[in-house]
Each structure stands twice: as structure tokens, then as C-alpha cells.
Design a protein around this nucleic acid. Structure first.
Lengths: 253, 253
DNA sequence: CGCCGACTGTCGGCAAGCCGACACAAAATT
DNA sequence: AATTTTGTGTCGGCTTGCCGACAGTCGGCG
């Protein structure tokens, strides 16, 4: 995978360390340790960040609207999103510590920027900083919880609710309220037929919750979406808060 | 949670360190480091090993037929199994490093034994032994993969295939080919109606793949089950092999 | 023995969402 | 401006699995 670079100036670094929920919690010393090894990248929608089977030698910390979608593709070509990661988290070797090949593919769903750090650097940082180590452990738990919730969500909740949840999740991470994606790709993420997505989109639009045109969906009424969405949205957010807290310190740091 | 103890004699310890796929890979020195802090427990079906919200202060390494089921319960009382863990893995704080409360409940599904080790001890061991640290990282990745596969599996595969997969998974871990569970509880694990499970069970029995009586299912024909099961079974096992290998050393230890 | 609670078998109506098909519209390409 | 590509709208038939209901059965226990 080749990633386009953006200017690695201090402005970029500052917004990375301020814009990502994990990086934001780092002390000056922690930050100083990582900074020399950070690479910044601007990513466009559709780019593959990590291919199945590829070794996870680095980790991306999204900020600035970037949302990366982790997809599991099955034999037969059908695929679902198993997790979406934005400025609240990290993608790559953060769980496996770089010791395992990717099980899912990671694709840029909403464009934005990321701070990219080699796993070797991160592993050293974990050794040196108790906070970093603890932070990554807690984030791993939060990510696992997110995926676990999706298992339950897929099993029980109707697509209308799941679609609404997805839109809320996406908009949380997006830089704008306009999400550039087709109904077709949304269908692929939710693991349902395109025609089903179309039906749901129509209903949500009639209710004034969203507006869409060719290749883009706009969120008009977050509160309304929240009502039709399943409570998986809240459940995951609650666990995030509990584990990582708003300040990212969480429990017993 | 209170766990009944079994005699912590050397015989028990030996079978624990030989019977669990993770513990088995430890060197004599690694084992010596943990041994003084290991508690052995015999667990009965239905016991709650970890309640939602409880801090994960220790980790269980199942052996000897024990299978623990991680369940996510939704508002409304419906629940699904998000992961099943047997002698190939570990349950508890292994991902969160003990830094987060449990998001799912963990219930004993098939009776057996476990080696229980406090997270504090495990964390120290990770510091001291590169192999242990690497092993736990790789297992974390494998567990996450398992859950991710379930998301896709629930989204696409018909229950007949999923049920067959569950039976294979369970029998891999069980001490015998007789699984003591009711159709009702299997329905709860798969996240479907009991009547649906009943229909599936009847079909599988007619095909001679299983036999069941009140409260127990017996696997008769593994190969046959494999044919009707979805390939999620193989997909997860393959990733396990790739990451942990048969000897648990996996990639670049 | 006889009761009772838990588990299983079965049915019929019903809704969600699959799936293929096709027409249309908007953008991109030439 | 003409053409192609890509995305959207919609329909009808069909299957899976939900859901409530109820009857049958097994086994333990008083």
C-alpha cells in the first residue's frame, strides 16, 4: 500500500495530536517520543488502507473526518462492515501489536487525514509509558466491544434501525454532515440488498431525517435518527466513555 | 463470582499446562513464573464466570472440555453468543489487560476445568517474557477475528449452516461427543427462535449427522456436519493456525 | 404413583428482506 | 451532442425465519 503524504509541518502534527481521541490524551513527553516517527497522510474515499493477509506493521490514527471501514469479505463476494473507525480510535496493528496478518480489509469510507506510526515505535512507547500501554489496552477492549455489539445488532435489529445507526456513527466521525457514499456501497456495508437500502432511504427521507442525492447522503435531523436507530449506538458509546472517558484517561490510569 | 476449587496438585497443573493451547507453548521458565499463582477450578454448566460490568481482574485458561460462552444481552432480554472459548484460548482480561469492565457476560456452556491467573501476574509475565507478550497479542487478534467472522456469518448464512458450525465448534472443545444443552439454550446462543432450532435439529438428525434427546445433542458425523456448515468454521480455524500455529509460536516469535 | 415443571414437536399466519429484472436519470467520457 | 457508465426507483414472486399458540412427553420429586 502506498499512501500519499501531506506536509508534515507542525500545523499538521498539532491537528493530528489534537484531533484524535487517543493521541489527544498523550502528555508532552509521550508526544515527544512519537512525534519524530509520525507520518501524516491525506486519504481519499475508496483507498485500501490494509489488505487481507497483509502484515499490520503500522497503525493509523484518523482525524479530520477520516473514517476507515473494516470489512470482512466472504467466499462468494458478499461483505459486511465489522467495524468503523474514526477519530475516536486507531486502525492497524493496535490489537495484534503487529504480530498478525490482517483478517479484514480496511478501506477509507470518508476522506480525511491520519497520523501513521510504525508498530515498532508504538511498542517501544508502550514499554516506556504506562499511560500509552494502558490506553491501548483500553482501546482494544472498546474496539472488541464495538464488534461484539455488531454481532447482536445484526442478529436482531431491522435494517431501518441499523441504517440509522450507521448514519449516526458516520456523521460523528465525518467532517461535514454530507456523507459521500452511494446506496450501493451502504448496502455492502450493512450486508443487505441495494433495493432494501433504497426503501429505507426513502422512508427516512420522507420523515425528513435525511436528504440524499446521487452519491451522497445528508443528515438533517440527528435526534430523529436517534429515535429510529437501535440503541446499539448508545451502548457502544457508553462503553467507550466508561473505558476511555472523555479525557481518554478512563479507569485507573 | 465464587469458583469452586479443585485440588491444586501437580497432576492438575500438568493437565492445565498441557491441555490449554496457549499455556502449552510456555517454556519451563515461563511456566515457573506463573505456576505459584495459578488457581485451578472445575466449572459446571450454567455458571457465570464473568458478569457484565464486572472488572476483569483475572483470566481463565480452559482445558479438559470447558467451553465458556460470551454472550451479549440486549435491552429486551434477547441475547446472542458473540464468541465461544475453549482450550484454544482464554477468557477474562486478556485483551483489556484488566483495565476495563466486561462488556459481555461469560457463562460456562460445557463443563470442564480452567487455570485461573490474576491479571497482575500476567502483566508482570508479559514484561518478563517476550514469548508471553507476543502470544497474548496474537491471541487477541485471533479472538477479534473470531468475533468479526460472526458478524459476517450472522449477516449471511442460514441457520442450518450456523447451527452446524456451532456444533462443530462446541465439539472441538468438549471432552465428549455428547453436548449437554437444550434446544432452547442453543436458540439463545444462535439468536434465533427455539422452534427454528427444533426444525434444524430434526433435519440434521434425519440426515444422520446428529442424534439428540432431551437436553443433549450428540455429534454422529463430523464430516457431514462440515458439509452443511458454513465455511466460517474453517475461516476462523485457518486464521488461528496462521496466527498461533499448532505449536502456538506462530509468526516471528 | 401421580404431579409438575421443563423440554420438545408442530402448526399456521405473517413480515422482512432476498433476488432478478428492468426502466430511468445523472454524471462522466468522447 | 452523443454515448457510455454508474447510480437510483420500483415491481412481483419467493423464502426464511418470526411469533404466538398449544399439545405432547420426559423425568424428577414428593
Amino acid at each position: 500500500m502506498e499512501l500519499p503524504r501531506i506536509l508534515p509541518g507542525d500545523a499538521g502534527l498539532d491537528s493530528a495530536f489534537a484531533g484524535n481521541r487517543l493521541l489527544r490524551t498523550l502528555s508532552a513527553e509521550d508526544r515527544a517520543m512519537l512525534e519524530p516517527h509520525v507520518e501524516l497522510a491525506a486519504l481519499e474515499g475508496g483507498e485500501t488502507v490494509l489488505a487481507v493477509g497483509e502484515m499490520t506493521r503500522r497503525t493509523l490514527f484518523p482525524f479530520d473526518g477520516l473514517m476507515v471501514s473494516m470489512r470482512r469479505v466472504l467466499t462468494g463476494g458478499r461483505s459486511v462492515e465489522v467495524a468503523a473507525i474514526g477519530r475516536e480510535g486507531a486502525v492497524g496493528g493496535i490489537i495484534s501489536c503487529g504480530a498478525a496478518p490482517a483478517f479484514t480489509q480496511a478501506v477509507v469510507q470518508l476522506p480525511g487525514s491520519a497520523a501513521i506510526i510504525p508498530m515498532t515505535v508504538l511498542e517501544d512507547a508502550k514499554q516506556a509509558s504506562p499511560h500509552i500501554k494502558n490506553l491501548f489496552c483500553r482501546y482494544s477492549d472498546a474496539l472488541l466491544a464495538q464488534v461484539m455489539q455488531s454481532v447482536a445488532c445484526n442478529a436482531f435489529h431491522p435494517i431501518e434501525a441499523r441504517a440509522a445507526r450507521w448514519l449516526l456513527d458516520a456523521q460523528d466521525r465525518a467532517a461535514s454532515d454530507r456523507l459521500e457514499l452511494t446506496q450501493e456501497s451502504l448496502a455492502g456495508l450493512l450486508g443487505v440488498q441495494r433495493t432494501t437500502v433504497n426503501a429505507v432511504a426513502r422512508v427516512l427521507q420522507e420523515q425528513g431525517l435525511i436528504a440524499y442525492r446521487r452519491g451522497a447522503i445528508q443528515v438533517l435531523d440527528r435526534e430523529g435518527l436517534r429515535r429510529v436507530s437501535c440503541d446499539c449506538y448508545e451502548a457502544v458509546e457508553r462503553h467507550f466513555q466508561e473505558v476511555l472517558g472523555e479525557d481518554g484517561r478512563g479507569i485507573a490510569d
